[in-house]
Design a protein around this nucleic acid. Structure first.
Ligand SMILES: [Mn+2]
Ligand SMILES: [Mn+2]
Ligand SMILES: [Zn+2]
Ligand SMILES: [Zn+2]
Lengths: 133, 133
DNA sequence: TTCTGTACTTAGAATAAGTCTAAGTTGCGA
DNA sequence: TCGCAACTTAGACTTATTCTAAGTACAGAA
């Protein structure tokens, strides 16, 4: 009876420890693109032992490395983490700072007119605007 | 006989001090998207007095505020500065980290299929790839 | 001219995000 | 059961940036 999260970690080659499971579970269950510190705050109470910031960073880096999550950088000095690893872009509400997912198929394919020495692997669109309630 | 740079600063409402002029001049004369520290290194020898890092940061922030330059964030933890304030996007060479300008008209206009509460002000495309020499 | 107030710059202290270190803990596999 | 490698921990360290307190520059008033 391995949990869904343990299976996610295992299939990506990450050994599922209690710390890693609770961090991955938190990220999978949110769509709000938390920072490392927000992950630490949210998760530290959910473990019977004290959680080190170093473990949070180690785990986030390991999960990125393994492809379980992605880093998102929309603002200077704020790395955010995203368990949505599907092809998507981001909408930033400039009033609140909130980051929303924008599925890649909601954005028309880009045509790029670049010199031939520029070979493109991928691209990411950051959309700035406002969400009216 | 105010210089071109002093005029640029003045017309943007920034009082042209020696420190600000030399920093703005350096940025206007390069297309390599330097970090604050690279600006500091490049510019500190060009003044008869010692230059404080605080002044570099104060100046960069003032120039951004005034619209003389823009911040560019392509990587976690590295804010870069850009005197190209025309509408453009960025190509990041994933091998070297070099950032190249991509004029907006080299990128096809985006069509976005967003829910009506999302009102778009602007967007920025970051293209990842490699420049073959 | 000199005076003077405000804006600017400075060195270094403080903060914040992230990494490293050294020591202890866990837990699978012989 | 043991041994070992992987993992976690607290706290020191590093790096980027901001803040602070004290000094400097300089335009306008007198
Ligand atoms: Mn989502
Ligand atoms: Mn930082
Ligand atoms: Zn996302
Ligand atoms: Zn640019």
């Amino acid at each position: 009876m391995t949990s869904h999260i343990e299976e996610l970690l295992t299939t990506h080659g990450v050994k599922p420890t209690a710390q890693r499971a609770v961090i991955a579970e938190y990220l999978v269950g949110t769509d709000c693109h938390p920072t490392a510190d927000e992950v630490f705050q949210a998760v530290s109470t959910k473990l019977p032992v004290s959680l080190s910031r170093a473990t949070v960073y180690n785990t986030l880096n390991a999960l990125v490395e393994a492809g379980v999550i992605k880093e998102v950088v929309t603002d200077p000095g704020r790395v955010r983490y995203d368990a949505n690893v599907s092809d998507h872009h981001h909408f930033v509400d400039v009033k609140t700072g909130q980051v929303y997912d924008v599925d890649a198929h909601k954005v028309s394919a880009l045509k790029l007119d670049l010199a031939p020495e520029f070979s493109v692997n991928s691209y990411h669109v950051t959309i700035f605007g406002e969400v009216k309630k």
